[in-house]
């Protein structure tokens, strides 16, 4: 039974602790499972440890003088805890980092080329690009302009497209909705959901925008102060009173209620 569960999880992260600069304990025993083909959300306020969790999985901690001090991460059954970031991308993990970070002085088309594995044939790369342009037609229109001058939404689309070129089986997105208008968030989330359903791409989505995230994922984890404090099906989380109050804007809460929790709410949303 245990083994069957293992086999169904594309990613299994067990009791991971991360230290920055050898002193700052940023996450304290986080366990997250991503079942194959599912979309999972990591929710939590600023500084909770969401990005650190993703960096532990993608291997980008090293670039920020961070390291995993305890626990193990398995991807498709292989222990990747100590693996180089580059190897993990080759295995099929791609991390769309916070803040879009497109290659500003390259064109969108060159951004996609830059992410192509050295071994990928030109024909395959062109096919990948066509597919990405069909998901994001706005990118196709601007593919030869400078990426630094794209709008925020277009840059987010490009960052996602650039990750797709690596042909991941697990896509991790760090706050893709940040600073984007609601209609753009809806468009981008819709496309991610579409890719997830059509191609079975597993997705780990980090969001502060819980309302939008819980609409498209099947499960969610709530992280606070470097620990998982809640885990459940998306519907159950949506119905949970704490989550409703702090993330989904309450609704039925009386004024008294809001005042009472104001300081806590402020902390969560800051």
């Amino acid at each position: 039974m245990q083994e069957k569960v293992e086999a169904q999880n594309i990613l299994s992260m067990n009791s991971i602790e991360v230290l920055y600069d050898n002193v700052l304990l940023a996450i304290k025993g986080v366990s997250v499972q991503v079942p194959k083909g599912e979309m999972i959300a990591l929710l939590g306020s600023n500084g909770a440890g969401k990005s650190t969790t993703l960096k532990a999985i993608s291997g980008l901690l090293k670039a920020e003088r961070g390291r995993i001090s305890r626990g193990e991460i398995k991807f498709e059954g292989t222990d990747i805890t100590e693996m180089l970031a580059q190897k993990r991308v080759e295995m099929g993990i791609c991390h769309v980092i916070e803040g879009r970070r497109v290659f500003e002085h390259l064109t969108p088309d060159e951004n996609l080329t830059a992410a192509a594995p050295m071994g990928m044939s030109k024909a395959t790369l062109n096919a990948e690009k066509e597919k990405i342009y069909s998901f994001f037609p706005r990118l196709a229109e601007r593919k030869n302009s400078q990426a630094g001058y794209l709008s925020g939404g277009e840059q987010q689309m490009l960052a996602i497209g650039r990750a797709l070129v690596t042909q991941p089986s697990l896509l991790m997105l760090d706050e893709p909705s940040l600073g984007l208008a609601p209609f753009l968030v809806e468009e981008i989330f819709g496309i991610i959901k579409q890719i997830n359903q059509e191609q079975g791409l597993s997705v780990l989505l980090v969001e502060q925008n819980a309302l939008a995230a819980l609409e498209i994922v099947s499960e969610g984890y709530l992280i606070e102060n470097g620990r998982v404090v809640m885990h459940g099906a998306a519907d159950a989380l949506k119905a949970n009173s704490d989550i409703q109050e702090f993330y989904l804007g309450g609704g039925e809460g009386t004024n008294f209620h809001e005042v009472k929790h104001y300081s806590r709410r402020k902390r969560w949303l800051s």
Partner: peptide, 8 residues
């Protein structure tokens, strides 16, 4: 950082 993130 972005380069590392896509396996460069």
């Amino acid at each position: 950082m972005a380069s590392w993130s896509v396996g460069i």
